[in-house]
């Protein structure tokens, strides 16, 4: 049985549809990523799955329990780490962990093996107040508190937003280790580069799911050959690409422009007086797929 099943879920705030007919399923022990920009509806989905928000339509189950009917059971077995740091800032690291352990009617000692790897990193600061920790340390503490009752499903809402690249990398390594403990993890992130680290991903925009698959399959589904192009006059290059009849799609991507086309583009660009043109194939990333799916939708 799947750990999380979401069935035509919908949430409307006044006149804005935040979650629009979303369905997906997450297998037990899977690391599932909800990838999408800010305002795509990721947090609303999380809040409905963690019983904080009532859906307007559709249904969802977590570990077989309905999010509306069996909310009490879900609160015992789900771990939730909200996007905003929401532990008690005026309590110390140790007091926060102990408090949440007690609230779940367990003790730190009973589940220490689960949080050990993470906890030893913040243990030197255990007498420090949570509000005085650095961003990365706060994330680790929040993860410890979300794990302290040995949840079967872990919901992480944008855990790496506002965290430095090194801490982000460490954080994903921790998630990999947790997966070995057979904890189902659903994580949301606006960073496309983190998508590759998930087992499966759902690309989401404006409350709608664009695609659900493994990161490799999403990338493989990209139909065209993708090129990266660069010239001395980048701004003119982008304009020229958009105007060219050969080009199917083009957009700025870092210091390059990503482009799909047919025919001899290099020659055409040279004709327009652009110099220093570099044109080469480039591997497709999740971000390219996302941009393509967005454009198709429009």
């Amino acid at each position: 049985m799947d750990a999380v099943i979401v069935n035509h879920l919908r949430k409307v705030y006044q006149d804005k549809t935040a979650v629009d007919d979303v369905s997906f399923a997450v297998k037990k022990g899977e690391l599932f990523g909800l990838i999408g920009p800010d305002g795509a509806g990721k947090t609303s989905i999380f809040r409905m799955l963690t019983t904080l928000l009532l859906p307007d339509a559709g249904s969802a189950t977590v570990d077989g329990y309905d999010v509306v009917k069996d909310y009490k059971a879900i609160r015992n077995l789900a771990g939730y780490m909200p996007g905003k740091f929401s532990l008690y800032q005026d309590l110390t690291v140790e007091e926060n962990i102990n408090f949440f352990a007690t609230v779940f009617k367990t003790t730190v000692a009973k589940n220490y093996d689960l949080i050990k790897d993470i906890y030893i990193q913040i243990a030197p600061f255990k007498k420090r107040r949570a509000g005085k920790l650095s961003g990365g340390m706060k994330q680790k503490l929040a993860l410890c508190c979300a794990l302290i009752h040995r949840p079967s499903v872990l919901f992480l809402d944008e855990p790496t937003t506002g965290v430095d690249p090194v801490s982000r990398k460490e954080f994903w390594e921790m998630l990999r280790k947790l997966k070995e403990q057979e904890i189902t993890i659903i994580v949301s992130t606006p960073y496309m580069d983190e998508a590759d680290l998930c087992d499966r991903i759902a690309l989401i925009q404006d409350g709608k799911i664009l695609s659900i698959d493994t990161p490799n399959a999403v990338v493989a589904a990209f139909p065209d050959k993708l090129y990266a192009v660069k010239a001395d006059q980048m701004h003119r290059l982008l304009k020229a690409l958009q105007a060219s009849p050969l080009v199917k799609d083009s957009y700025a991507f870092g210091e390059y422009a990503h482009v799909t086309f047919e025919g001899d583009l290099e020659q055409e660009l040279a004709k327009q007086g652009l110099t220093g043109i570099e044109l080469q194939t480039t591997p497709v990333t999740i971000e390219d797929c996302f941009i393509k799916l967005l454009k198709e939708k429009q």
């Binding site: 963690t50 019983t51 904080l52 009490k72 609160r75 015992n76 789900a78 939730y80 909200p82 905003k84 740091f85 929401s86 532990l87 008690y88 800032q89 949440f100 609230v103 779940f104 009617k105 508190c145």
Partner: peptide
Amino acid sequence: EVGTIEQINVTPI
């Protein structure tokens, strides 16, 4: 306001 109630609300308290 701080958001701690969110964390409390997902617990079986």
